[in-house]
Design a protein around this nucleic acid. Sequence first.
DNA 1: CTGTTAGCGCCTTCAA
DNA 2: TTGAAGGCGCTAACAG
Lengths: 336, 336
Amino acid sequence: MTDVARLAGVGTMTVSRVLSGTVPVSEAAAQRVMTAIQQLSYKPNELARAFRGQRSRTIGLIIPYLYDPFFANCAHAVTTVAKDKGYSVIITTSDEDPETEFAEAEQMLRRHVDGLVVIPSKFRQTRLTRALFGRTPVVVFDRPVADEPFDMVLVQNTAGAHKMVQHLIEHGHSRVAFMGLSRSLFTINARFLGYRKAVQEAGLKEDAFFGCQSIEETLKALEERLSGPNRPTAIFASNTLATRYVLSALVHLGVKIPADVAFAGFDDFEMAEFTSPALTVVRQPAQEMGRVATNLLFDRIERGEIPETGNRIVLPVEIVLRRSCGCKHRTAVVNR
Amino acid sequence: MTDVARLAGVGTMTVSRVLSGTVPVSEAAAQRVMTAIQQLSYKPNELARAFRGQRSRTIGLIIPYLYDPFFANCAHAVTTVAKDKGYSVIITTSDEDPETEFAEAEQMLRRHVDGLVVIPSKFRQTRLTRALFGRTPVVVFDRPVADEPFDMVLVQNTAGAHKMVQHLIEHGHSRVAFMGLSRSLFTINARFLGYRKAVQEAGLKEDAFFGCQSIEETLKALEERLSGPNRPTAIFASNTLATRYVLSALVHLGVKIPADVAFAGFDDFEMAEFTSPALTVVRQPAQEMGRVATNLLFDRIERGEIPETGNRIVLPVEIVLRRSCGCKHRTAVVNR
DNA sequence: CTGTTAGCGCCTTCAA
DNA sequence: TTGAAGGCGCTAACAG
C-alpha cells in the first residue's frame, strides 16, 4: 500500500480511502491511485484489514458431514448466500461429535469470524452455549440446541412424519414400523414423535427400532420383525441412511415393495424416483433452510444485535407420493 | 496476551513461547502462564498471528458445486485432512464459471491462504494460472488445467470408460450410445475418448450426444435415437447427472433396462444398487482423490516449494458390475 | 531461559 | 480533501 501511495504521490490514507470509498477523495488523486494499483497489481491484505478492523468478512459453517448430500445441500446454500454478500466461509465438519464441534467452534472464534451457521451435533450433548460465542452471532439450523437462545431454523419434522405415517395408515396398514438411527438425534426423535402420534391416533401399536447404524443391524431387526407374529406391513424410515439400509435388507430378504410391505422415507434425494419402486418420501427444503439461516445470520451481523431469545423459524415440508407407499397414480407432491 | 503476561508475572514473549512451544521455557513460568490463560480464558487471536507470521494455517478450496454429491465427497476429504493438520478451510463454489473461479481465487489470495485445492472449471476456459498464485502452492484435482505447471490428481477417466464400454460390447451390443453434458468438461471428454476407442477397436460406429443439459433435451435425443434406424442397444452415460436424465427419459419412453437397452454409467453413487435395475457403473474414488490432493498440497506447503512442472497423479477406477448392463450374477467389483 | 524492541498492513483519530 | 501518528495482537530478532 505504501508503494501504491508513493507511486501515486499521495499518502497511504488516500489509498485506503479510495479503496473503501467511504470518504470523498479528489477525482485527480483517485485516478492516480487507481492507476498505481493497476501498475503494481496491488492486492489489499484482507488479513490485515480484518485484524485492524472490526469485521473479518468471514462466517463459519459447522456441519456434521459433507459427504451426506442433505448436509452438502445445506452447505451449498450457505456458501452461495455468503458469496453474494462478499463474505468468505470457513467450513468444518463435527462428525456428530460434540467435542470436535466445540473445538472447531473455538477455532473459528479465534479466527474472529463475524458469525456462525451451525448444524449442531447430538441434541442435549452439544457443548455449544451462547456464552461461548460472546458477542458473535450464531444461527443453528436443522437441529436446535436445548436451552440456549440461538436463532434456529428447522423443518416440520414431527408434522411431516405424522402426515406421512397417516398416509401409510390410509393405505390400510395397521402395523407400521419406524426405523431410525438414534433418538439422540433431534430430527430422528422429532420424526418418531410424529410417527407415534399418527399411530396412536389410529389406535395402533407402535413398533420402533433405533439401531439402524449399519446394514447388518438393520437387516437383523427387520428379519426378526418380518418373521414374527406382528409382522409390519409398512415401514417408515426416518432418514436417507435408514432408507438405504432398509432397502438393502428388504432386497436381501426378498421382500417386495409395496406388495409385501409398503415403504415411506424422510428426506427426498435425487435418485428417489428411479429406485425400485420409486420412493414415497417427505421432502425437506435443504437449500431453503441453509439460505434462511444464513440470511438471518447476516441480519444479526448487520444490526450487531444478539437476541435475548432466539427466533425459531420452522419451514414446511412436502409429501412426495410415488410408488413405494402403494399409490398407483403418478408422482404427486402434497404441500402441507 | 498482555493481561496473561501480567497475571503470570512474565513478558508477553514468554506467553507466546509457551503457546507455540517451539522454544524452551522454564517449568515454573510455563505453569504460571497456563494458569493465567485458564483464569482469563484467553483465546489467541489467530488473525493477528496469521497477519504477523508467515502462515495463516488456512487453505482454500474451490469446487464447482457443493450440491453435487461427487464434489461434496471430494470436499469432505479435503476438510478432513485439513482438520487433522490443524488447518482451517475456506470453501467456495465456482458454479463452473471461470470468472467466478478467478475472482474467488483472488479473494483467497487476498486472505493469504497457505495453499489452494481446486477443481478447475471448464477446461481451456479457466483463467487460473501459475502466475496468478505467485508463491502460493496450488493442487488441482479431478480436472487438469491446460499448460500450467500445477500438481494435479486425476482418475482414469479414459481407461475406465474404455473398459466399461468394452464390457457393454462383450455383452453383444454393437450400437452403443454415449450421453454427456459437454465436451468442454475435461472429464466428460476424457470419458468420451475412452468410449470412442472401445467402439473403434470393435469396428463399431460411434454415436455420441453432448446435450444432456436437461431432462427435455436428453429425452428428445434419446427418443430420436431409439426410433431411428440405427437404434442403440446400449447406453453409456458419462456422469451421474446424465445417468439421471437418461433414466428419466427411458422410464418416460417405457424402455426396459437391460431388456430393451443395456445401460452403464460413470461415477457410482449410494443408491445405485437400488435403482431399477441396479446400475453398472465406473466407480471413481472421490474421497481418495481429495485426500491425495490435500496431502500433496501440505507437502508443498511444508517444503515451501513450487514445482517447475507439476506432478500428475492418476488414481485407478473400478468397474462395478450390477444388473443394468445385462449381467446376471450378483454385484461384482472389478479392479483395473 | 527471558525480556525488549520493532513492525507486519491497515484504518481510526486528529490536525491541517 | 488530505496526511501523520498510532496501535490492533502477535512474534522474529536480538540482547541480556
